[in-house]
Design a binder for these strands. Structure first.
Lengths: 190, 190
DNA sequence: CTGACCTAGTCAACAAGTTGAGTATGTGAG
DNA sequence: CTCACATACTCAACTTGTTGACTAGGTCAG
């Protein structure tokens, strides 16, 4: 039920097609909600059926037609109702952590390789989020931005994604150090 | 498919009943994987059918019988194979963030209340994880522990959970400040 | 002029996660 | 003596999320 709220929140910035959302989700929402295009299209159809959004077919030259979705009054209302609800806390739910938990009885080298790969991925995400942040700030200081911007929500959620990935980088580095030292100890015990 | 790997990783410490797991998951695994008891029991049945674990019924005086599950050789093998796999990165997937994203067009007061509640929850988690950490360390320094412990996996995953919740606390505090200042500005614009 | 990649989707099948209720016994507080 | 709470589960229905394959036109490099 939350995907639809995430979609509605994304549509606050104006209309978008399913394809747009599938792409820009990666920039605007993906720091805290990921989904496949298939999920998105299915949800969009349902949301249209429920009257939360309306679709307008836009004919394009040199491109396939697309359906532009916009939030309806009912959609905006439901979104507001959602913001008024209580929200369950979530945990991380990461396969890599499961692998690390079992690393002592598993393939230590492979786990280390996975952590290295994850660190790189997280570093790339950090850079991406920082570029997005700079774009949002648009030369202003944070205080200035927060005082003048129409919406602060996207900035705050971006900050959360940013610090999450920074934390990932730090944790990956620390875990690698620990596991490498451990590998050394096991290879050459005194 | 990852729940079963998480369960197997949890069983590395020795056998446990479904009920035990449902409870101790909260301590050992819940920092990165949450599930309901129902999910757990269903998965345990399937895992037994697949020969990854074996169940031994333990009759107890003054308590209902319980089934004690232990990892089989096949289970340990599959777990090792899992650690050798690549693992997709995950995002946060948090309803509260969806609400914050939409906060500018939603019920600002309710969102602030939700953030406050979340901060308290996260603070409680931090304390809990710190107690767990102290218990794992058992008086030793971290270096000492890492050099002597049989398994470092549980410690590393605990650290991840800990820093995630610390980050949550920081983010909640910052967001509250921002939203409160904003509320003030909107109530009394110059 | 061909083959790879981009736009803009759709369909079907399945796996995983959530919700709500129900069973049965024992312990401890008031 | 009763009621809440803990142990130790089970069942069914439902909603979400994932995977893989498929359509169909346009662009651009070699």
């Amino acid at each position: 039920m939350s995907l639809r709220n995430a979609v509605m929140a994304a549509l606050l910035d104006g209309g978008a097609s399913g394809y747009d959302l599938a792409k820009t989700f990666d920039a605007a929402v993906a720091n805290f909600w990921i989904c496949t295009p298939q999920q998105l299209y299915r949800e969009l159809d349902r949301m249209e059926a429920d009257g939360l959004i309306t679709a307008r077919t836009v004919e394009q030259q040199r491109r396939p037609n697309k359906r532009l979705f916009t939030l309806t009054a009912k959609g905006a209302e439901e979104l507001t109702a959602f913001t008024a609800q209580q929200h369950k806390p979530t945990a991380i739910r990461d396969e890599l952590l499961v692998a690390v938990l079992a690393a002592d009885h598993g393939d230590l080298e492979a786990v280390k390789a996975s952590i290295r790969e994850r660190r790189q991925w997280a570093e790339a995400k950090v850079e991406r989020y920082e570029r997005l942040r700079a774009k949002l700030l648009d030369g202003r200081t944070e205080d200035d931005f927060l005082a003048t911007a129409e919406r602060v929500g996207p900035y705050l959620t971006l900050l959360r994604g940013l610090s999450f990935e920074r934390d990932n980088v730090r944790w990956c580095a620390k875990s690698l150090t620990v596991l490498e030292r451990r590998g050394a100890r096991l290879d050459a015990p005194t």
